[in-house]
């Protein structure tokens, strides 16, 4: 689940865990109802068998690693400690652990309860950038091995694509789109989805053409799309689908504000767009240069703009 702050992602996760009182609706797992307000069913969290990891993992700081796991299963679970590579930490206390170790301990503890679903709330929010990537890759490995349904909340699309088969975009308590990462990129349902996936979003006015539509952007410039549309619209284009062209022949031009080296590619900031270009591009790019822009019509997403 991704969405802006305050969209209700955490509330939804907590509702599944049974931690939010006063829920209405239906929640069921494998046909077993956990919540059904019409039938007055509302299982308490103790009886729902969820593996819930809050934002900072919620390890009990006053118990050892082994103690944390025993809290969940009332047994020592050496095989879990072994499986998560934390056997050597059994007597350590959570405050002395690294971010990655904490995550492993928290997952081991959640699994010690034999949950039917894993609920992960922003598992990387407390981590620095380097640890974050490590921990995410580690989590991806663990999750594929587990074969458990997992509901994961994040605000970063990058994390969602790295971990999820399907992504739900949520805004102000409503489900906007539920799709595979590829589909979300290929066909964002609205401006918010497009923005969350990292697209450039601009306003414009569309006119119908035989092959779709042609959009005149506010602030000048023109783009073609395969989507039929007319009237005021939003246009969304992902940074990696914009190409630099010769400004003298291009129907869309913009000025470079900054160029950032980002691994194997260059992130080029323009006044109205961000684009990704290969690092070994022939054209030397400097601030203040006027460049032409182009995109394949199928990569230009046209979204309705409510007036």
């Amino acid at each position: 689940m991704i969405g802006p702050s305050g969209a209700g992602k955490t509330s939804l996760l907590r509702s599944v865990a049974g931690l939010e009182r006063h829920c209405t609706g239906q929640i069921a797992l494998n046909g077993v109802p956990w919540l059904d307000s019409t039938r007055r069913i509302n299982l308490i969290p103790e009886r729902r068998r969820v593996g819930y990891l809050p934002q900072d993992y919620g390890l009990f700081p006053h118990m050892t690693v082994a103690g944390n796991i025993r809290f969940a299963s009332k047994l020592d679970r050496p095989e879990l400690l072994e499986q998560f590579g934390i056997a050597h930490l059994a007597t350590a206390r959570p405050p002395s652990l690294s971010g990655g170790e904490r995550q492993r301990v928290a997952l081991a503890r959640a699994l010690a309860r034999d949950p039917h679903v894993l609920l992960l709330d922003e598992p990387f929010s407390a981590l620095d950038a380097i640890t974050r990537r490590q921990v995410r890759d580690e989590l991806a490995d663990i999750l594929t091995r587990l074969e458990l349904p997992v509901l994961l909340v994040t605000h970063a699309f990058e994390d969602a694509t790295a971990l999820a088969d399907r992504i739900a975009v949520i805004d102000r308590g409503e489900l906007i789109q539920l799709d595979t990462p590829t589909q979300l990129l290929a066909a964002p349902a609205n401006v918010l989805v497009a923005a969350l996936t990292g697209a450039n979003v601009l306003e414009g006015k569309a006119t119908s053409t035989p092959t779709g539509s042609s959009i005149v952007l506010h602030g000048g410039g023109q783009l073609d799309s395969t989507t039929p549309a007319s009237g005021p619209v939003h246009v969304a284009i992902h940074p990696w689908q914009l190409q630099l062209t010769d400004p003298s022949t291009s129907r869309l031009t913009d000025t470079i504000v900054g160029v950032h080296q980002d691994g194997g590619s260059r992130r080029i900031r323009l006044t109205r767009f961000t684009i990704h270009a290969p690092a070994n591009g022939q054209v030397p790019l400097t601030e203040g240069d006027l460049v032409g822009l182009g995109a394949l019509p199928e990569h230009v997403h046209v979204l309705e703009r409510p007036q």
Partner: peptide
């Protein structure tokens, strides 16, 4: 006391 710790304890089956 951090409320989320008590929430976690609930989900781990603690009354």
């Amino acid at each position: 006391v951090d409320e989320s710790l008590l929430d976690v304890a609930r989900t781990l089956g603690a009354g």
